[in-house]
């Protein structure tokens, strides 16, 4: 499903069905998930293509936060000054873009995973986060690329004590998603300062063969002052 598609287009994969047909005024887009309600959109354009890529999973049912919290299904204890690479999953959201006149425009976002939101921190100073419960793996797990992506976490304990990790919070600004037909990847680092705080960030890997980079929808020229990091100050 991922990649660039010519119009007319008819895609059916797992629960997702996408049809784009030519009409008098341009194109007619119809999308359906698991036989649910149809989403339709008229696209007033000519000589265009459709691009489907994974996007930052913070848009369903609507965008209310820039932060994604992954809670691990078990506690991880990390030794002092230890560095470890682990894998977990994150929910996938598909962005459907139309490509015309050298520009991409996002016009539909699809998710097969029910969203759940939570609070990180206290009600006054905390942040609302998209919540996802995940297992932790030492090797890359096999998951359905339309439902889950793989996050590679480089966890480093800068503290001189043992620390317990139960979650990681990531900032949407800075998430770089890479996709292939079989897998969606995200790379993140977590630097632990003490038992309650850590700094997280997403990074671009040096080489990622056979993977394409997704279009970042949380990236704006106007927001260059925004940080891509997140300081977890209310527990890790």
């Amino acid at each position: 499903m991922y990649g660039t598609h010519e119009i007319p287009l008819s895609l059916q994969e797992k629960d997702i069905s996408i049809n784009v047909t030519k009409t008098e005024f341009g194109y007619q887009y119809i999308r359906q998930i698991a036989g649910g309600l149809e989403f339709q959109k008229a696209l007033l354009a000519v000589r265009s293509k459709i691009l489907i890529t994974p996007v930052e999973p913070l848009n369903h049912p609507k965008h209310i936060t820039n932060f994604l919290l992954l809670e691990f299904d078990r506690e991880l204890m990390i030794a002092p000054q230890q560095e470890k690479t682990l894998y977990a999953t994150f929910p996938i959201e598909l962005g459907v873009f139309i490509y015309a006149k050298q520009t991409y425009e996002l016009f539909d976002k699809i998710s097969c995973i029910p969203a759940k939101y939570s609070l990180y921190g206290d009600p006054k100073n905390g942040v609302v986060v998209r919540y996802h419960l995940t297992s932790v793996y030492s090797k890359i797990p096999q998951v359905d690329p339309l439902h889950f992506g793989i996050i590679q976490m480089n966890i480093k304990n800068n503290n001189s004590n043992w620390n317990t990790i139960t979650k990681i919070v990531l900032n949407a600004y800075g998430m770089k998603l890479y996709y292939s037909p079989l897998q969606v990847k995200l790379f993140a680092s977590m630097k632990i300062s003490d038992e309650l705080s850590a700094e997280t960030d997403c990074y671009e890997p040096s080489t990622e063969k056979n993977f394409k980079k997704s279009i970042e929808i949380y990236q704006s020229k106007k927001l260059s002052i925004l940080t891509t990091k997140f300081n977890m100050m209310d527990g890790i």
Binding site: H60, S118, L119, P123, Y131
Partner: peptide
Amino acid sequence: IENEPFALKVP
């Protein structure tokens, strides 16, 4: 409540 996205997990 669990199935409702905007009913928070925490608190």
